[in-house]
Amino acid sequence: MKATPLISAQELSNLLKTASNVVVCDCRFELSNPQQGVNLYNAGHIPEARHVDLDQVLSTKGAAGEGRHPLPAREHFAQAMAAIGISDNTRVVCYDANDSMFAARLWWMLRWIGHDNVSVLDGGLLLWEQAGFPVTTEPPEPAREGRLSVRDSLTKTVGFEEVLANIDSAERLVVDARSPDRFRGENETLDPVGGHIPGAANRFFKDNLQPNGAFKDADTLRREISDSMNGQSPDRVISQCGSGVTACHNLLAMEVAGLSGAALYPGSWSQWSNTKDAPVAKG
Rank of each mutant, 00 (worst) to 15 (best):
R222S: 11
Y265H: 09
L40P: 01
H76T: 15
E224F: 07
A281R: 10
N230E: 15
V120L: 05
F205H: 06
I84H: 07
R184Y: 08
W112H: 14
D122C: 01
E186N: 13
G114M: 12
P192F: 03
T189I: 11
Q130W: 04
G231Q: 08
D55I: 13
P279L: 10
M229G: 11
E161Q: 15
P211Y: 03
G62Q: 08
D277C: 13
A64G: 15
S119K: 01
S13W: 12
D26L: 02
A263D: 05
D235W: 02
D116F: 08
H249V: 10
G283P: 07
S260R: 12
R236G: 04
A262W: 02
G242Y: 04
A263S: 15
L125G: 01
F29T: 03
E186T: 11
P139V: 02
S273N: 08
D26V: 02
A218K: 13
W108N: 02
V237H: 00
K276F: 13
F204N: 03
M101F: 09
N89I: 00
P47K: 11
R222H: 07
S153Q: 08
I197E: 02
P72K: 06
E138K: 15
G159W: 02
A103I: 04
V175F: 01
P234C: 02
V135P: 02
L58V: 05
N117E: 06
W107Q: 09
R236D: 08
H69C: 08
D88V: 01
L259A: 11
I167C: 11
E11K: 13
Q210W: 11
P234I: 04
S239Y: 01
M109A: 04
D55E: 15
F204S: 05
A131Q: 14
Q35Y: 07
L16P: 02
S153K: 09
K156M: 10
D227C: 03
A73C: 11
L264Y: 02
D88N: 14
Q35S: 13
E224W: 01
L264V: 07
D152T: 12
S20T: 15
L40Q: 14
T189H: 10
A78F: 07
N230Q: 14
R203E: 10
L154V: 03
G114I: 13
H76N: 15
T18F: 11
A201M: 13
A143D: 03
D88H: 05
D53R: 05
S226D: 12
P142S: 12
V237M: 03
E255R: 09
D176M: 10
A262Q: 06
E30A: 15
